[in-house]
Amino acid sequence: MEDFDGRVAVVTGAGSGIGRALAERFAAEGMRLAIADIEKDALDAVRRSLAARGTEVIAQVVDVGDEEAVHAFADRVFDGFGAVHVLCNNAGVFNGCQIWSRPARDFAWALQVNFWGVLHGIQAFVPRMIEGGDEGHIVTTSSVAGLFAAPFSGPYSVSKFAAYAATECLGHELVVSGSRLRASVLCPGGVATRIHQSERNRPASARTEPSDDQAFVEQVIADTVAAGIAPEAVAEQVVDAVRTQRFLVLTHDAYRPGLAARAAALASGELPPLPDYETRD
C-alpha cells in the first residue's frame, strides 16, 4: 500500500507512546484517523492535536479487551468514514513476574488486552476491510518479548507471543484467500513510552497484591524505556513496512542476530539463548 492520502487509519492505544506517534505520522501522510484509548483525557488531547492540524478524526474511549466495545467502535468508524485502510491493533499493557509465583489474574489481564484486544480488532474490522475490496494493511504491536521469552516476563511474553502468532496466521490467511490486505507485526525493543506504568489502567477487578518479583521487573522495564528510542522513530518504521509490505518490523537491529541464534538452538532441541535486552541500534 503506497497511497495514504485521503485514506483511513485506525489506531488503538492512541493516547500516548507508539499509538500517538502512529496517529500523528499517518495524519502527516494525509490520512483520516480513527483513534481509541482507554484513557479519556489522553485521547482527547490527541484528538485536539490532530484536529488542530486539519486532520479529520473520530475518537472513542475503548477498552480493547471488551469485544462489544471494539465492535461498536468499528461500527462508528465505518459509518463515519465508509472504509478502513490501515488498522493498527496497538493497545497493550505490561505485567511481569516470576511465572510460578503470581495469580492467574495477572496472566488473564495481560492476555485480555494484548491478545484478545488484537483478536477483537481483527474480527471487528478485517471482514469489512476485505469486503471493501481496497488494498490495506493490518499492523499488530507485539514486542521483542513476543519473539524471545525472558525471565520474569511471563504474563507479558505469553500474551505477546500470542499476538505475534495471531498476526502470522492472519498474514498467511490474507495471502491464501486472495485478499488485497497484508499484515505486519511490530516488535519493539526499548522505546520511550509509559508501558512500565500500565498498572494505571488495570481495572479493579483484575488487581492483585504487588510482590518483590513484580517490582523488580517493572524497574528493569522502567530503566529500559528511559533509555529507549523515540516513538516517532517506531512510527516511521511502521509506515515504511506498510508501504513495502514487510511482515516483521523489528525496531532494533541488535536483536536480528538473536533470531538466527534462537532458530539454531530450537532446531537442535536446546533452550534458546537470551538476547541482550538493550536499546542500541
Rank of each mutant, 00 (worst) to 15 (best):
S157M: 07
S159Y: 00
K160R: 08
A162F: 03
A163F: 01
A166N: 09
T167D: 12
T167V: 06
E168V: 12
E168H: 10
H172D: 13
V175N: 09
V175I: 11
G178R: 08
S179I: 10
A183G: 09
V185K: 09
L186E: 04
L186Q: 02
V191F: 07
V191T: 15
V191D: 04
T193S: 04
I195L: 10
E199P: 03
E199Y: 15
N201H: 10
R202F: 01
R202M: 11
P203K: 10
S205W: 04
A206W: 04
A206G: 06
T208F: 12
E209Q: 11
P210T: 05
P210R: 01
P210V: 06
F216Y: 05
V217E: 04
Q219M: 11
I221S: 00
D223E: 08
T224C: 11
T224S: 13
V225N: 02
A226V: 08
E232H: 10
E232N: 02
E232A: 07
V234F: 00
V234P: 02
A235Y: 00
E236S: 13
E236G: 10
V238I: 05
V239T: 00
V239F: 00
D240N: 08
A241H: 05
Q245M: 11
F247R: 04
F247V: 11
F247H: 04
L250E: 01
T251W: 03
T251M: 03
